[in-house]
Structures are given as structure tokens and as C-alpha cells.
């Protein structure tokens, strides 16, 4: 095909290489399945290469003796420490994971509930919104000690801080999503004589999912931070505790191991929600791989 041909084609067509017709679209989902593995590879090679370059730089800097080991441990040392203390790290990782997931789930339930209440009642919105904003601007680390006083040294204060951290993006994205419904569709459903619950379930909630899921991704990473912040102010277990201990012993290799596990936890939670997105909103524009296609009228 000549370059001239490409120039003449509309942008959307040139991108996908061909114009899919409607009947082809019908078969698209089944045809796409075998290509999934290579699609993942195509998505992942760039960040993978970047991580490898970072690791190489880390290795170079530490092995050449340019930085003292107590400031920056070498990747081998970090790895060895992690393997040697696998049981210890595993136990504390489990604690932080439970706190994070529990806090995140509670935040999802309460956050979405509050978002729904605020959408359906103007007076609730006007009452609750400033309070929620106020609660959000208080630095969580500043009130975390208070929760230790109230709830003791167990898991509870950590879960509470995780909830507080994750709550705000969920409420905001939940509300934005519920408000994003086409007003004409709501007018239509009102002529269908549907009760508000049915309209919520079949129209409002599905329409809110794309925005809500974006909020959940932010919330998931914040929940990890919340749990660790909770552990910082008073704990005898969890990754936050591990980091404080390692810091006190100037055991930077252990500190790095804990940090990496913590980050991996956040990434994993994020990835789980990403996968949920593929299943929940395959119809959404952000999930379509090719440009818009149209069948003839």
C-alpha cells in the first residue's frame, strides 16, 4: 500500500488499519482471546525494561562503592536479607495486608453509601460534604496517635487510618460517577414508571462505574499508606513496625526489603482493580482498543 493511500484515509481508519464493520464487531470478542498474551507483553515490556535499567543502576552505584552500604544497600544484600528473613517479613506483610484490605473494603462500603445518600438528598449533601472535606484536610498522621489512645495497639487503629485515607477518593469519584448519568435517560426512566431503586440499579450504578473504579484505584494505594502510617505511631507488628525497627538498627537492607514489599502490595491492589475494570466495564470508551467504528444506517 502506498503512503498516499494512508494519507487519504480518515484518522480512525488509518489507526486500526481497516474499518471494522458492525458484523465483524460481533465476532471481535472471541477473535481477541488468543492474542491476549502477546497483548500483555506489548503492554508490559516498557515498564519492565525501565525496572531492569533502574536495578542495573542501583547495582552499579552500590557495587562500585560510590555509596556507603548503610546509606544504600546493594540489591544483592537486600535480596539476601529478604530471603533470610522470609518468615519474619511474611508474617508482618500478612498483618499489613489484612489491615489494608480491611480498611479499603470498609472505605468502599461507607464511601459508596455516603455518595449515594448525598446524590439523593440535597440536605445530606450540604450537611456532610463540608465535614468530609474537613476530615480529609486533617493530616492523618497527626490524628493517628489519637486512634492508638482510643483503640489500643491492635489492628483497629491501623484499619481506621486506612479507611480514612481511602474514603475521600471513593466518595468523590462515586458522586461524580452517579452524577454523570445522562439526564435524558433519567427523564426516560421516569416515563417508564420505574421505582427509584430499579433506576439506581439498572441505570445510575452501572453508569457510575468508570469514575468509581478510577477512585478505587487511588483509594487502594492510599489504603496501604494509611495502614503503614497507623503502624508507625504505635505497633508491634506489620511492615511499618519492621521499617521502624530496621531504621533503629540502621539495617537499611531490611528497610529496603520492607519498602519494596510495601510498594508491591500497592501495585498488586491497583492491578486487581484494573482487572475488575476489564470485566465490569468492557463497554467503556477507555477500554476500547480500537477507535470508534460505525455501521451504515
Amino acid at each position: 500500500m502506498s503512503a498516499l493511500d494512508n494519507v487519504r484515509r480518515p484518522a480512525g481508519e488509518a489507526r486500526s488499519g481497516r474499518r471494522p464493520k458492525a458484523h465483524e464487531d460481533l465476532t471481535a470478542p472471541t477473535a481477541a482471546k488468543p492474542a491476549r498474551a502477546s497483548k500483555w507483553l506489548a503492554e508490559l515490556w516498557r515498564p519492565l525494561v525501565f525496572v531492569i535499567i533502574l536495578l542495573a543502576a542501583w547495582w552499579l552505584v552500590t557495587n562500585q562503592g560510590w555509596v556507603a552500604p548503610f546509606i544504600l544497600p546493594s540489591p544483592q544484600d537486600t535480596w539476601t536479607t529478604a530471603v533470610e528473613h522470609a518468615a519474619y517479613l511474611g508474617q508482618h506483610t500478612w498483618i499489613t495486608t489484612v489491615e489494608t484490605v480491611l480498611g479499603f473494603l470498609i472505605a468502599v462500603v461507607i464511601g459508596e453509601l455516603v455518595a449515594v445518600l448525598m446524590i439523593y438528598s440535597k440536605s445530606i449533601e450540604k450537611t456532610a460534604y463540608p465535614l468530609i472535606l474537613f476530615a480529609q484536610v486533617i493530616p492523618k498522621i497527626a490524628i493517628a496517635p489519637l486512634f492508638v489512645v482510643w483503640l489500643g495497639f491492635g489492628m483497629e487503629p491501623k484499619v481506621v487510618v486506612a479507611v480514612l485515607m481511602a474514603f475521600f477518593p471513593i466518595v468523590i469519584s462515586g458522586m461524580a460517577g452517579l452524577k454523570s448519568v445522562d439526564p435524558e435517560i433519567l427523564e426516560l426512566t421516569s416515563t417508564m414508571g420505574a421505582n427509584p431503586f430499579k433506576t439506581f440499579l439498572k441505570v445510575r450504578l452501572p453508569a457510575s462505574l468508570p469514575q468509581l473504579l478510577s477512585g478505587l484505584k487511588v483509594a487502594a494505594t492510599l489504603a496501604v499508606t494509611g495502614a503503614v502510617v497507623g503502624e508507625f505511631v504505635g505497633a508491634n507488628e506489620g511492615l511499618g513496625y519492621v521499617i521502624l525497627q530496621a531504621n533503629g538498627n540502621i539495617d537499611t537492607a531490611m528497610l529496603f526489603a520492607a519498602l519494596i514489599i510495601m510498594s508491591a502490595m500497592g501495585v498488586l491492589l491497583f492491578a486487581i482493580i484494573q482487572v475488575a475494570e476489564w470485566f465490569l466495564i468492557p463497554w467503556h470508551a477507555s477500554r476500547r482498543s480500537t477507535g470508534s467504528s460505525a455501521a451504515g444506517a
Partner: peptide, 15 residues
């Protein structure tokens, strides 16, 4: 007919 399973974004404005 034939488009029962198509999603709205796969259809033209007329359809």
C-alpha cells in the same frame, strides 16, 4: 436484524 448484540458505540447515529 443482525445487530441485536451490538453495543451502541458500534452503531451509526441513524441506527
Amino acid at each position: 436484524t443482525g445487530f441485536e448484540q451490538s453495543l451502541p458505540h458500534e452503531l451509526s447515529g441513524g441506527m
